[in-house]
């Protein structure tokens, strides 16, 4: 499935306030009122966008997006706030908890630690893109079966990390799994069950 969307990232309503107050545009204050009013909706936005935003193309879960984003927007915030893919979680925003783990071109990354604009042209997979059609990914099935979660908040990150852990060849033993999953914190403490789920997928020989 592939489609093109073109929507601005972020809400633009108050940019006018900024522009009216910015020194660069004080010149507008000598422009007659009606002109200024017209400009507030059209021109100001474009001028401001040129300052603040850069264009970005990326593919998320098979959907191609053409976006305009602020350079300081993290991949995590882009997913959650602009694309409404809230399955990827914010647990610390410092790359310490793993709740925001997604795959970028097949590699697991902490999406809170990378800016969206760093991923021009890349393919992102989030938890929402792991199941195929209505069929759960084997790792998702195994997490349900082994109760590899409680509150569920770290779960998307655990699952994305677990899939990568198996693909990387780092699920050879219980000890190895624990080591290579240690970037994903589960405060509910469902670690034993998460490890059991990963082992089942690894030993089941299904394609991950």
């Amino acid at each position: 499935m592939s489609s093109e969307t073109d929507k601005p990232a972020g809400h633009d309503e108050s940019r006018r306030t900024f522009l009216k107050q910015s020194s660069l545009l004080t010149a507008f204050t000598i422009v007659p009122g009606p002109v200024l009013q017209a400009a507030t909706y059209e021109l100001d936005e474009k001028v401001a966008a040129a300052f603040e935003k850069v264009s970005l193309k990326l593919e998320v879960n098979g959907v191609k997006h053409k976006l305009s984003v602020e350079p300081r927007t993290t991949l995590l915030d882009l997913l959650r706030e602009n694309l409404n893919l809230t399955g990827t979680k914010k647990g610390c925003d410092y790359g310490q908890c793993g709740a925001c783990t997604v795959h970028v071109d097949g590699q697991r990354v902490n999406s809170c630690l990378s800016f969206a604009v760093m991923h021009e042209g890349k393919k992102i997979t989030t938890i929402e893109g792991l199941a195929e059609g209505g069929k759960l990914h084997p790792m998702q099935e195994a997490f349900v079966k082994h109760d590899g979660f409680q509150c569920g908040y770290c779960t998307p990150g655990q699952i994305m990390s677990a899939v990568a852990c198996v693909r990387e060849g780092h699920a050879g033993s219980e000890t190895e799994i624990r080591e290579f999953m240690s970037g994903n914190i589960c405060r509910c403490g469902a670690y034993s069950n998460i490890v059991a789920a990963i082992q089942e997928v690894k030993n089941g020989g299904q394609k991950v």
Binding site: I127, L136, Q140, F143, K145, G152, P156
Partner: peptide
């Protein structure tokens, strides 16, 4: 029994 909200939690469908 498996959790009734398990599917929502493993697919990112659970809304916090």
């Amino acid at each position: 029994m498996n959790r009734v909200d398990g599917r929502l939690k493993v697919t990112g469908g659970a809304k916090y």
